[in-house]
């Protein structure tokens, strides 16, 4: 584990999200809806990094990230690392790659889209651009830019 991950004490079990685009950590926390869940979370912002000049890091204790949560992370900070920690050791290490499409991760901004009106309907978007992020609703065709994406 690098010095940067030691800045705050290491966690026994949980997830460390590393190499988050600097300044994007708060957005990631919001999108993952982790606040108010009773989970112990550490957010480090603008940590000096060898790879980039600086990065954000999030440590989530006693919780491993789900697939849809990884997708949200990938959307907000493609290339971020997801480290699953078990008993102080990095048990799994994945890079959050931008997917081609996402299901039930965000909601469509078109009020008249069927995905907002049909009971039980799942939302689905294709990723049309990674940087700046832009997604398109598979159903109504609405294109949504990063700042306007509302996560579920």
């Amino acid at each position: 584990m690098s010095d940067n991950l030691m800045r705050v004490q290491p966690i026994r079990n949980g997830t460390v999200l590393d190499h988050i685009k600097a300044g994007r950590g708060r957005k990631v926390l919001d999108a993952l809806d982790l606040i108010d869940k009773g989970t112990t979370i550490t957010l480090l912002m603008h940590v000096p990094s060898k790879k980039n000049s600086s990065k954000d890091v999030i440590k989530i204790e006693d919780r491993e990230l789900s697939e849809s949560e990884s997708q949200k992370l990938a959307l907000l900070s493609p290339g971020a690392h997801v480290n699953i920690i078990r008993n102080f050791v990095v048990a799994e290490k994945n890079v959050a790659e931008l997917p081609e499409s996402i299901s039930n991760v965000a909601i469509c901004s078109n009020d008249n889209c069927i995905s907002n009106n049909e009971r039980g309907a799942k939302t689905k978007f294709n990723i049309i651009n990674g940087n700046p992020l832009s997604i398109q609703c598979v159903y109504c065709g609405r294109k949504i830019a990063q700042d306007n994406i509302i996560f579920i």
């Binding site: 889209c113 069927i114 049909e118 609703c137 109504c140 065709g141 609405r142």
Partner: peptide, 27 residues
Amino acid sequence: HPQEGSARLASENSEVPLINGGDGAGQ
């Protein structure tokens, strides 16, 4: 159907060919 995207959603759930005859302001 009056809502955009209704025909795409319907096509995902139809075993026979589905033709969109107009979905809201969509296609």
